[in-house]
Every structure is written in C-alpha cells, then in structure tokens.
C-alpha cells in the first residue's frame, strides 16, 4: 500500500491551544483510519488543514507527493480529497435526489452546463443506485431537510463519496445520531466505503465504533499523535488509557 497523504511537522496554534504541534503522519492507500482524542486535541483542525479550510503556520501536507498547502478547498476536492462535516452540510431546500444529482454533475465537470437538464436519465440512474447503497431507497424525492440526523449524516457522506475521492475524511459521522441508530449509520457507511479502494479517515468519540471499523487508530493529544496502531494496540497503551479513556483519573 502506497502513501497517499503525508503530513510533515505541521504546526497550527490557536492562541495557547496547540491544535497541531509538529504533527507528522502518513496515510496509506485503502486504509480505514480512526482518529480519537479529547476535545481540543487537534482532530478537526487536522481535517480542516488537509481540506484547505485552515492554513498551517508551519510544516507540509503532501497528497500523492505534491504539496497541497495553500490550495482552496474546491481545488483540494478536485484533486481527490473530500470530506463530510460534524454538522451535515446539505442543500436542505432540495430533495435527497437533487442533492446527489448536483454532486454527480460536479464530478463529471458538467456543473456549468445551462442547456441540458440536471435530471438526465444516466445521472438519475447513477444517483438512485448510489443513494440505495447508502440506504436511501424510499422517499428520495423528499426534501433533505426532512431527514433525521442519521439520514443527514449519511447523505453528507454519500455526497462526498459520490465525487469518487482518493481520501474521504469524515468528521464525527455519528455525533448527534441516537445510540440506536449509531451502528446502523456506521454499518451502512463503512459497508460502502470498504467496498471501494478509497482511504477513509473518521474522527470519532465512541471507542466501540472506532474499535469495530478502523484498521488503524491515531490518538491525538495536544496537537500531536500520542499513539498509532491497531485498536487493540492503542487501547492497551497506558498513556491512552489515562489521557484519552480517562482511566485512573
């Protein structure tokens, strides 16, 4: 497995908070990586830096060997790094299907077309298939605003996945989702992701979810990586048990 993303000595501080403090990590092709850590440890900042939302004050981020520092989010998305958000970012006044159709038109670089309809037969077929993969079979003509949180999260991921990225970054895909629906959401999501060859990175607070779905776990603490390994390895690490899991505190 080749390296697809490499962060080298990345630095980003917000006042006294060290969100990224000389952080270095490599992500391999096809891996499913879980990121855990306490609030303020730099998990979301790392994702924001990789996707171009936040600019680091030092260090380097390379995607397939090329630097992506300073690129706009849209350009990074076009290179093949897409993301979902902690608060799902959808087109809420449009239907679930129309959300997906827009994503597909952007993927095929046809978003500037103003003559042919968005609802072409080929695009409709692919959108329906992709939505079905993510569990949306009935009611795709309903507005996205009518979805419950679990559905919103899945649609947010589905839109990012539809762009056929090399790396898919998921910021807390189960936050706000009820305990009953959490595994349903992750099962659906990971089922689709693992069938593709993409590298998936997800930030998560629920250690059970991380243990079940991540091939590799990165434990963030104060802007650095405290532990890196399989879930069994990192959860056995005494420092992780103390600082992240809160045991013996």
């Amino acid at each position: 497995m080749g390296v697809v993303l490499e962060a080298v000595n990345v630095v980003r501080h917000f006042g006294a908070v060290k969100a990224c403090d000389d952080l270095s990590v490599q992500l391999q092709e096809g891996q499913t990586v879980g990121i855990v850590g306490p609030n303020g440890s730099g998990k979301t900042t790392f994702v924001n830096i990789v996707t171009g939302y936040v600019k680091p004050t030092g260090g380097q981020i390379r995607f397939k060997g090329d630097s992506i520092i300073g690129l706009e989010p849209r350009k990074i998305a076009n290179l093949g790094i897409t993301r979902s958000f902690q608060v799902p970012q959808l087109y809420t006044s449009l239907t679930i299907l129309e959300n997906m159709l827009i994503a597909l038109s952007i993927r095929s670089k046809q978003q500037w077309g103003f003559w042919r309809p968005l609802r072409s037969a080929a695009r409709l077929e692919e959108a329906s298939r992709l939505l079905a993969d993510f569990g949306f079979t009935d009611g795709i003509d309903h507005k996205a605003s009518t979805l419950p949180e679990g559905g919103r999260k899945l649609l947010d991921v589905a839109l990012s996945f539809a762009l056929q990225p090399t790396i898919l970054l998921l910021d807390e895909p189960t936050s706000g989702v009820s305990v009953d629906d959490k595994f349903a959401v992750m099962d659906t999501l990971m089922g689709v992701v693992k069938h593709s060859a993409i590298t998936a990175v997800f930030i998560e607070h629920d250690m059970d979810v991380v243990a079940r779905y991540a091939d590799r776990v990165l434990v963030f603490s104060e802007g650095t990586i405290l532990a890196d390994g399989t879930s069994a390895e990192v959860f056995a690490n005494p420092a992780v048990r103390t600082h992240v899991l809160g045991e013996g505190v």
Binding site: T51, E72, P73, R74, A77, T82, R83, F85, Q89, L90, Y91, T92, S93, L94, E98, L101, I102, A103, S105, I106, Q110, Q111, W112, G113, F114, W115, R116, P117, L118, L159, S160, L163
Partner: peptide, 20 residues
Amino acid sequence: SPLGFLMRGINDNEIRVEYM
C-alpha cells in the same frame, strides 16, 4: 440545468458547493 440547480445549492449552502 446543473447551473440552475447549483445556484439553488449556493442559496442553501455555499460551503457544500465549494467542498464538492
């Protein structure tokens, strides 16, 4: 068209448009 829907998307959520 895709452009027409993209404008409605911009009305809803510019962030999503850029991150797509």
